[in-house]
Amino acid sequence: RGPAAGGGFALALACDVRIAGESARFNAAFIRIGLTACDMGVSYFLPRAVGTSVASELMLTGRFINAQRAFATGLVSELMPDAEVDAAAAKLALEMTETSPLGLRLTKECLSLSIDAGSLEQAVAIEDRNQVLCVRAGYIEEGARAFLEKRKPRYAPRA
């Protein structure tokens, strides 16, 4: 909800998932105060979220992007009334915590690595490694049992 400018924008960009209320606005404010817009990871995350053209427009001008356009460009994954943002974020977080802890961590890692992978083969190699790690950790037994019993899995924390 509301503005996320400069450092706030950078923090939002560093999030894995961004949900916005209708009043949300974002900008790379540093360019407007005599600095570059390339600070706190904005130059890394923004082009990956919205593409080079939109990232260039926002970073070279410091323009605000409103919530509707942020949703249309993929900067945010969901757009909703301001009053619903907290509940939606809590629901999303709960859904993530219902997955195996190792599977969640390795999925995040693999997604980040695959964006810059040099080839499909490199991405698949990371995926294969992560599946082996998850199988060896034993989470698959509870996941399969829960699936067959038509219930949510109850993953025990592992070291």
Rank of each mutant, 00 (worst) to 15 (best):
S119C: 11
L113I: 09
E127N: 08
A125P: 06
S119M: 05
V76G: 12
V124N: 06
S77E: 14
R105G: 05
L111M: 13
M96W: 02
T97P: 00
L79H: 12
G138W: 01
D116M: 08
A89Q: 14
P101F: 01
R105C: 07
L113C: 08
I115F: 14
Q122E: 15
S119H: 11
D82Q: 03
C134Y: 14
D128A: 10
L120D: 13
T97A: 01
T99N: 09
Q122D: 15
A117P: 03
R136Y: 03
T107E: 00
A137M: 06
G103W: 00
A93K: 01
R129D: 03
M80Q: 11
L111P: 06
M96S: 01
A137Y: 02
D82G: 08
I115A: 09
T99E: 02
C134L: 11
C134D: 05
R129P: 05
T97C: 02
A83P: 05
E95P: 00
L79A: 12
V135R: 12
L133R: 14
L94C: 02
A123K: 03
P101L: 03
A93Q: 10
I115Q: 02
A90F: 12
E98Q: 15
L79K: 11
E95C: 03
L113D: 14
L113R: 15
M80G: 10
V85T: 13
S114F: 06
V132P: 01
C110R: 01
V135M: 06
R105Q: 08
M96K: 02
A137T: 04
D86E: 14
C134N: 12
E95T: 03
D128V: 07
T97Q: 04
D128S: 08
I115C: 03
R105S: 10
L106K: 07
L120I: 13
Q131A: 09
L111F: 12
S112W: 08
T99C: 03
L104Y: 08
Q122W: 05
L113Y: 11
S119G: 07
D86N: 09
E95H: 06
L102I: 10
L79D: 13
Q131E: 08
L94H: 05
G118Y: 07
L92I: 04
D116L: 06
A93D: 07
A125S: 14
L113G: 15
V124L: 15
I126T: 13
A93P: 02
Q122K: 14
A117E: 09
A117F: 02
A137D: 14
S77K: 12
